[in-house]
């Protein structure tokens, strides 16, 4: 586990806590130090502060993603929404907002770690949803749903990244292609169509949740 923050006190508290929770912890106070540290001793996960001296959290995320799929958990604060979304777009997996609770941090960390361990299976079950990736078929309560190709691609993207926050830009790039990265109204329309099919109550979604200002997240609420 690599913890990156320029506040020595936060670093110290996190280091002590995570070590007590059973993780091995390395620390870094700058973006450059974090990149070096990650190369020397590849971590299982990176906890990364957004605002750092030298290279920012966004740049560190981008450079890490060039060579590793290690889960990156962003520490952000109110007022840093713009940078937070940029870091997520650059490949970070998730974020917690300062001052975060310990339980929240550990839960997000465990979820991130689990995702990398999940193998690419042809069959995904999320709540009462059953997604057969190879047959391009989706069942809800055993009933076959009829999805358009774009709706299926969208659901598949969410399903293989279950629990992970996906930004608007990331989804548009994956489903529609890089030329559509800024067409977020497409996305809102397709998400609401998809919700009408997979959610029992589309106005109060259980699976496909909105992260205000950032993106969407498919959760396994079962």
């Amino acid at each position: 586990m690599l913890v990156v923050d320029d506040e020595p006190q936060i670093l110290r508290a996190l280091e002590t806590t995570l070590r007590a929770a059973g993780y091995e912890v390395d620390t870094a106070a700058t973006g450059e130090a974090a990149l070096t540290q990650a190369a020397v001793r590849p971590p299982d996960a990176v906890i990364l502060d957004l605002v750092l001296p030298g290279k920012s959290g966004v740049e560190v995320s981008r450079e890490l993603r060039e060579w590793t799929q290690v889960p990156i958990l962003i520490l952000s604060a109110v007022g840093e929404e713009h940078e937070k979304v940029a870091a997520l777009d650059a490949g970070a997996d998730d974020y917690v907002t300062k001052p975060f609770g310990l339980d929240e941090l550990l839960a997000r960390l465990r979820a991130s770690l689990r995702r990398t361990q999940r193998e690419q299976e042809p069959l995904l079950e999320i709540g009462d949803l059953r997604i057969e990736l190879d047959k391009r078929a989706v069942y809800k309560d055993g009933e076959l749903l009829s999805l358009t190709p774009h709706e299926f691609k969208l659901l598949r993207l969410f399903a293989v990244n279950v629990g992970r926050l996906l930004t608007h830009q990331m989804i548009l790039r994956e489903v529609w292609g890089p030329a559509y990265q800024s067409e977020s109204h497409y996305l809102h329309v397709y998400v609401s169509q998809l919700r009408r099919k997979i959610e029992s109550d589309p106005a109060r979604p259980r699976y496909l949740l909105t992260e205000p200002g950032a993106g969407y997240r498919l959760v396994d609420s079962a």
């Binding site: 006190q9 936060i10 508290a13 806590t17 609770g101």
Partner: peptide, 11 residues
Amino acid sequence: PLTAIRVAGES
């Protein structure tokens, strides 16, 4: 400081 205090306290 609040983050450090909260993490330390909850630990």
